[in-house]
Amino acid sequence: MAPKGLFFTENHEWIKLEGDTATVGVTDHAQESLGEITFVELPIEGKELSAGDEAAVVESSKAASDVYSPAGGTVTEVNNALEDNPETINESCYEDGWIWKMTVKDKSEVEGLIDEQAYNKYVEGLE
């Protein structure tokens, strides 16, 4: 089940808003379907992103999956620990497995995304 207070995309990214900055990662459903994650290509710090831009790539031995930015803004920090320990996403996708942090240009863009209840329902529909 997806945690409360986060917003979600139908491509299985989550975004957590704290003031003007936000943290982004992939959901439990995403890590489940990928299997053992062995490689993460992180975005570049300082990169300007629009909502829907490809920002990162998460790969398991079975598939490579693009991670799209849920909102527009600038990348301020990336989770470098994932380069050596990409499986952290499997183990803790909503906490230690975050992928990047960004400033958010327009908060309403994030608030317009689906909440955890709608996302849980959406995932249920996929099963």
Partner: peptide, 30 residues
């Protein structure tokens, strides 16, 4: 293979020592 190594996939190019493409991966797993 292993943590932090991008997995090889089908269609990736196989190269000789001069860097010339001499074929392709057809299947890969880790």
């Amino acid at each position: 293979s292993g943590k932090g190594t991008r997995p090889v996939r089908a269609d990736d190019a196989v190269l000789n020592s001069k860097g010339e493409c001499i074929g392709w991966i057809t299947s890969a797993a880790a």
